[in-house]
Amino acid sequence: MSEQAGPVAALEVTPPSQLASTGRAAELAQLLQGRRGERHIVALQDFPDPDAISCGLAYREIAHRFGIAADLVYDGQISHPENRALVNLLGVPIQQYEPEMDLETYAAAVFVDNQGSTTHLTDRLKEAGVPTLAVVDHHDPDDVLDPIFSDVRPMGAAATMFVEYLSSGELLTLERNNEHHTRLATALMHGLHSETDGFVHARAPEYRAAAHLAPFIDPDLLEEVLCVQKSHATLSVIEQALHNRVVRNGFSVAGVGYVRWAERDSIPVAADFLLTEENVHTSVVFGLLAEEDGREVVSGSLRTHRPTLHVDEFLKRALGEDLRGRPYGGGRSRAGGFEIDVGFLKGDEDDPNQQAMKWALFDRRIRRKLFRAAGVEELDEICGPDEE
């Protein structure tokens, strides 16, 4: 009779994704090793969210270890109160693009949480002859840029990817009682929290990332950032969305009319709110924004908890692309957005009737395109007659 084997100690197996990330971290470390003394621009999307801001801060800290200066730049606005609180309370060194900035002083550009299609900096950097060094993003591939280093994977957050880099030990090792590392860990935790709806939609990589960050964060500071109250303007947009929403087949679509540029982030907040309604699995909210330079855009956000809806594919199919071949919309799992330039219909007319007519045109057309892509048949009933 053979001797029974004793208990076998459990082996800790490193997930394949983490092994791949360690390889990417080593690759990035080798690349940065040869770029010492340079100055890089970290190009964030025009309206940077906590995920983008925290990733930009992570690259800045990593670059500093390799003797590289890095500036976080965006060409839009930080309008969401929570995002402003993140920047202000953590003292994130981020700057808005100004026409007088000399982009030619940068040796390379790094894009985090975007691939160049959601920032006006892409064209500006190309015109200035600034090469793209790296792209780190968790959305579906856009193929807009041709970087030396690319890490584009379908993850819950771009912050997850940077935490994997940090945990590999190849680029930067977080230390307790280091003010910069505490600030970075807190920002990345906020990025994870924001991008996964408070970890409701987090997966194993996000939980591992949070566990790695936990010993280094400032919980009181994180709570202060998360508890920022909604503005009156944001509540007004939510009210408009509730009043104007049309629900069909689980899709809730609402146009909220003209929205002040400074309150742009009230649109995704309203989309999040509509998603809480009973029997709604997908919400879309959109409004018309006017920039200070006269440019007008229709900006919208989509939110869903329907696992079978491929957000990126849905928005690209519904809204199409511009004359340059760039999609008007795109996204990731459970969330997406779109921006459509008003073009020659833009104007600074003060006539309320003309403004109402212009908004009615865009409201009808966008509703029709979204509901058609969703397979809703009674388009004339809910959107008005087709004038295409």
Rank of each mutant, 00 (worst) to 15 (best):
D348G: 11
R306Q: 15
G23N: 13
P81A: 01
F314Q: 00
L133E: 05
R306I: 07
A58P: 11
H40C: 03
G56A: 09
G116Q: 04
P147A: 07
A52F: 10
R183T: 01
H40Q: 13
H232Q: 13
T186V: 13
E82P: 02
L345C: 05
R324S: 08
R208G: 06
V92L: 06
S79I: 08
P352M: 07
T196C: 00
S17Y: 12
Q354M: 10
E206L: 01
V297L: 04
L90V: 12
H232M: 14
I41D: 06
E3M: 06
V280E: 10
Q18K: 12
P215R: 02
Q95K: 14
F371G: 05
M1V: 13
V110A: 05
L184F: 03
D386M: 09
A210Q: 07
P147R: 11
G56R: 05
G287T: 12
S252A: 15
Q229C: 04
I62H: 03
N178T: 15
Y74P: 01
D363I: 07
D113K: 00
D102T: 06
E223H: 14
G91Q: 13
V269G: 00
A254R: 08
N88E: 15
Q96V: 10
D348P: 00
A335E: 06
R248I: 09
G67D: 14
L288R: 06
G384F: 15
A25I: 03
A233Y: 12
E104N: 15
Y59P: 05
H40A: 13
E296W: 09
L222F: 05
G23H: 11
R65Q: 14
V144G: 01
G320V: 07
E179G: 06
P205W: 01
R324V: 02
E291H: 15
G34R: 14
A262R: 11
A25H: 09
F47V: 12
S167G: 02
A318P: 06
G156M: 02
L226T: 09
H40P: 00
D220T: 14
P307F: 04
H64N: 15
G255D: 05
L89W: 05
Y106T: 03
L121K: 03
L57T: 13
